[in-house]
Amino acid sequence: MAADKLVIGGREFSSRLMVGTGKYATFQQMAQAIELSGAEVVTVAVRRVNILDRSKESLLDHLDLKKYTLLPNTAGCYTADDAVRTCRLAREAGLSDFVKLEVLADEKTLFPDNEELLKAAAILVKEGFTVLPYTTDDPVTCRKLEALGCAAVMPLGAPIGSGLGIRNPSNIRIILETVKVPVIVDAGVGTASDAAIAMELGCHGVLMNTGIAGAGNPLAMAEAMNLAVRAGRLAYLAGRIPRRLYATASSPIDGVIE
């Protein structure tokens, strides 16, 4: 297992769990949760500086950037144009070309607008970004994103923050057979078993925020997710037994007393 690395855009990661930095009660809690999760990639949002109130602590004061790779997102963007501008700003602020590209369709579902997503991905890849797009669990869109040069595809398990888990495992399996780039389930994970299911399907990683930050005890859930992703990955690599309708005895049939 030592050599089982996740490679995205030429970078190697030991952890297959990526975590968000939003919704935590305090920066301290966030930092502890990330530490316990074992994640090496952490997502951040890009927002206007409040020029009237600069007293607030900075998120980056609490993240060791030697340890974590920042993955800025384009959350809140509803057009390709806004998403592209946000990515350019993120690259300038963070000096890294990794971006989690999301172009949303509406506030109620936060489902991706795939038409705008593809438009933005094409521009960003040309500009040299390492693009990790958040997409619907649609194999065709994933194939198109890969063809454009995205470094991974990140199909949703369920709507962002919904905790509904992996609602369409069959589509995730088809995506895994369709693309060669890493498949990271992004959004929908509600508890540890959801993360394990994603990994057992053969996904290369899982990205989550609310599942940890919104849990009753975020620190305990961070550790649970760490274990679940590793357990799911190991189980996938181990190869599960086939599902059978009827029993197959575990104990020898011969030698039973009469």
Partner: peptide, 28 residues
Amino acid sequence: DIVPKGEYETTLLAPGDKLEIVRFVGGG
């Protein structure tokens, strides 16, 4: 248009400029 960090000292603001100044915050 992005103002590269290396050009902050040489980029003179002009009347009517629209600036966006952003940073990283918590997000998923």
